[in-house]
């Protein structure tokens, strides 16, 4: 199966030593730079932020084996482990908009609470329905291997 071949390739790639951290940072910097050149090409009515383009680019590069996991995963995993801390300034920037909280703060918190529950329930139910259609209409296997 195609999926198994991929896993093997990933495994064999991991046996080779990881790229030096500066090379890994260089790959990230190159992807970011290219993404920042692509991002302004999208119209203002359909904004595509630089990190979205970078995410898709890195995924394509990984999936096409141009970039191997060992070239990027050390720096990438490190950045992901920091992600909660990196959001601190995004949270604190609310200090510049405290007046919107004074007038609409309670309502915003209530709407966020509703939105969170709605997103959870609606997405989960939609997915469950689609999976059931796949199983009952197309009779396709829906088991997932536990290989985490």
């Amino acid at each position: 199966m195609a999926a198994n071949k991929d896993v093997e390739k990933v495994d064999s790639a991991e046996e080779k030593p990881a790229s030096p951290i500066l090379i890994q940072m260089g790959i990230f910097a190159a992807i970011l730079f290219v993404s920042s050149l692509i991002s302004p090409l999208f119209p203002a009515s359909f904004p595509v932020p630089t990190p979205v383009i970078g995410l898709v680019l890195l995924y394509i590069l990984l999936a096409s084996h141009i970039v191997k996991l060992r070239n990027v995963e050390k720096f990438g995993d490190f950045m992901i482990s920091l992600i909660a801390f990196l959001f601190v300034p995004s949270g604190i920037q609310l200090a510049a908009s405290l007046d919107i909280l004074k007038t609409q703060g309670v309502q915003i918190v209530v709407v966020v609470l509703i939105a969170t529950i709605v997103l959870l329930v609606v997405v989960a139910y939609t997915a469950a329905l689609l999976i059931r259609i796949r199983k009952n209409v197309f009779h396709r296997n829906v088991d997932v291997d536990d290989d985490d």
Partner: peptide
Amino acid sequence: FLNPATIAFAI
């Protein structure tokens, strides 16, 4: 640094 961190989610 959220830029490289967001890109890293491709991994």
